[in-house]
Design a protein around this nucleic acid. Structure first.
Lengths: 160, 160
DNA sequence: AGTAACTTATTGACAATGCAGTAGGTGCCT
DNA sequence: AGGCACCTACTGCATTGTCAATAAGTTACT
C-alpha cells in the first residue's frame, strides 16, 4: 500500500479524464486555428462570429445577442466586429424601432467566406478529433459531457 | 429520411463529443480562473508555471523546458516569468555550464503559494468537473481521450 | 585558433482583449 | 410633459500575448 505522499498531487479518479478534456481541446484547437489562418486568412474568433450569424434568423444578430452566444465581453466584441466589418464580411445596420441597437448581418461575401471556412474547419476537427475516436468512444464522451452544455444557460452553436 | 439540408452543418457522429470537450473545458476553466484570481490573486498562467516547476527536479527548469511544457511561446514565457519573478514567487538563476541559459526556480514563497493554490484549484476542478461524472463516465472519457496526451510530444503535468 | 552555424533568451513593435467609464436612447411613473 | 432609472454600444487605458529581430554563448569544422 502506498499512501499519497504528496498532498498537492493526490490521486483522483477524474484526473485522467480532466487531462484528456484539456489536452484534446487545446491540441485540436491549436491545429484548427493555424489551419484556418493559413487557409482563410482570419482567426477562429472571426469564424465564431460568422457562424453565429449564419445560424441566426436572417443571418443577423444584435451585439447583445452575439455577446450571449460567445465568450467575449461587449467591448471585445465591438472591436472584433470592427475588424470583421472592415474586412467586408459583416455589416452593421440600425435596428428598426431601437436606435440604440446595432444589428450585425453577414454580407454576401461574408456568407461565402463562412461556408468555405466552416466546411474546411469541420474537416480539420474530424481529422484531428473525430477520426481518433471509435464510434463507441464518441458516444461515451458525448454522453458523459452532455451535461456541460445541456443544463446550463450556455447554449449556442459553438463553432470552435 | 431527411437528407442533410445544409452542407455547412452536416450531422457527424463526433459532433456531440467535440462540443462536450469544448464546453466542459471552457466552462470549468472559466470558473477555476475566477476562483483562483479571487483567492490567490494570480491567474492560471502563473499556476501553470509554478506547478511545472514544482514537478521538476529541484523545483527548477530552464526557459526552454518550460516552453516545451506549456502552451506559450518563448517570448510570452519571458514576460510571464518576468511578472512572476517580480512578485517574488520564482527566481532566475544562471545555468552552470551554459551561460546562455536561465534556470527558473521556485522561491520558498512561491512554493508556499503554489501548494495553497494548487490544492484549492483541485477542489474546484473536482467540484466543477469530476463531481459531475460517474466513475464509469470518468473512466470512459479518460480512456477515449488518453491518446491526446500519451502518444504525442506534449506531455507534462498540465495544471490548467 | 578562427569562423560559420546554431541555440538560448530577451526585446521592440504591434494585435487583441478586458475593465471602467461615457454618450446616447428608451420607458416608466407621476 | 419632466425626470429618473435603465439599457445599448462604444472608447480610453492597461494588460497580455505573438512575431520578428537581436545579443550573447556554444559547437563543429577546418
Amino acid at each position: 500500500m502506498e499512501p499519497d505522499e504528496d498532498p498537492t498531487r493526490p490521486e483522483t479518479t477524474w484526473n485522467d479524464a480532466w487531462r484528456g478534456v484539456l489536452f484534446a481541446g487545446a491540441k485540436v484547437l491549436r491545429v484548427a486555428e493555424r489551419d484556418l489562418v493559413e487557409r482563410e486568412g482570419f482567426p477562429m474568433t472571426w469564424l465564431d462570429v460568422l457562424a453565429q450569424l449564419y445560424d441566426a434568423p436572417g443571418n443577423g444578430l444584435r451585439m447583445q445577442e452575439l455577446e450571449e452566444r460567445s465568450l467575449f465581453t461587449r467591448s471585445g466584441l465591438t472591436r472584433l466586429v470592427d475588424r470583421i466589418e472592415a474586412a467586408g464580411l459583416v455589416q452593421r445596420q440600425p435596428v428598426p424601432g431601437d436606435r440604440r441597437g446595432v444589428r450585425v448581418v453577414l454580407t454576401p461575401e461574408g456568407r461565402r467566406r463562412h461556408d468555405k471556412a466552416f466546411v474546411e474547419h469541420l474537416r480539420v476537427i474530424e481529422r484531428e478529433f473525430g477520426g481518433r475516436l471509435t464510434p463507441a468512444e464518441q458516444r461515451a464522451v458525448a454522453g458523459a459531457l452532455a451535461g456541460f452544455w445541456h443544463g446550463d444557460q450556455e447554449s449556442a452553436t459553438t463553432t470552435t
